[in-house]
Design a binder for these strands. Sequence first.
DNA 1: TTGCAAAGTGAACAACTGTTTACTATACTG
DNA 2: CAGTATAGTAAACAGTTGTTCACTTTGCAA
Lengths: 183, 183
Amino acid sequence: MLTEKLNQIKKFYRRHRRLPSYSEMLKLFGFSSKNAVFKVVQKFIDEGLIKKDGNKLSPTSRFFALPLLGNIKAGFPILAEEDHSYLTLDEYLIGDPQSSFLLKVSGDSLIGIGIFDGDIVIIEQKKNANTGDVVLAQIDREWTLKILRKGYLEAANPKYPPFYPHQELQIFGVVKAVVRKFN
Amino acid sequence: MLTEKLNQIKKFYRRHRRLPSYSEMLKLFGFSSKNAVFKVVQKFIDEGLIKKDGNKLSPTSRFFALPLLGNIKAGFPILAEEDHSYLTLDEYLIGDPQSSFLLKVSGDSLIGIGIFDGDIVIIEQKKNANTGDVVLAQIDREWTLKILRKGYLEAANPKYPPFYPHQELQIFGVVKAVVRKFN
DNA sequence: TTGCAAAGTGAACAACTGTTTACTATACTG
DNA sequence: CAGTATAGTAAACAGTTGTTCACTTTGCAA
């Protein structure tokens, strides 16, 4: 089966974060001739799962990304094979990997905008932000995650008052995305 | 500078989804001897950014993953270099890539559990789920995303009533994670 | 200025890369 | 059954791989 071989390659890619070489696939598939591997790989290339990159192989986005289906509409056959695009969450959510980091959120001060306790936010480091941005900031030397307003910080939860700095309000980064895992 | 070379390799990895070979790095760095590259790579190996994998190179998780910082606590120096772990969002959020797909959410029926209009959910395909799971289901032939209860579906928004099936309630998958991008 | 480690050059090497060719076994179609 | 496309074997090949050795250049501390 061909999809079984694809899964073996995907498994290898997940473990090693690189595609196996032809001789590695040889062992992987249990073949005894590299040409057999060559022909299998050619099929994956034809299907657009792998591509040639110089004299090497590299995976296409279809290889490792997940299919993204459109909106749910009543009675709509969302699982139809068309109009897929393929998405990597890292690529989708992280704009500038160099200046970004993740932060585990604690507290309920941002539940109004759907950031819950235990969520992970992607923060892009920068020293200034726009009003309305969710920022990681130090207000009077205390770290916090809040919405930036003109000269103060605001929670997204009616039970918290606005936060006016007594001395200092310093911005360290802007929240670009949230991520939550269930269970 | 060494970090500049690392960024060049990262850039290459993002474009090609594989590490460059020594001769490719040669061009990348502007060197004229492969040995110079060899020594640079050795440093990255020493730092744990790249590792040897057979007779090939492969990136470690520190190479492409983002640092995850702990919870924010008042006054806590979260940016201290210690107790980092490194996280790939894809690996963190997607348990079984083979059976998962993404779905763009429309509607406000799940705002109570922090799933908003425009969010993307990661769905794992399966035909049965536990009570309390957020499921992708077909209720009387209409697709929907709701919370599964005993024999019916429920929104997470007081403005919607429970959804009892007239004929049929079929489950297609379980929501394992949500993801939201700001701006 | 001297001494020395770090950084880079250049050439050589065996091992492995992907690819090709020629041939055989297998499976399927009419 | 025969005919033929598909799948796999075996061996050979040039180009590239990562690695090593000997040497030169650069930068920096004493």
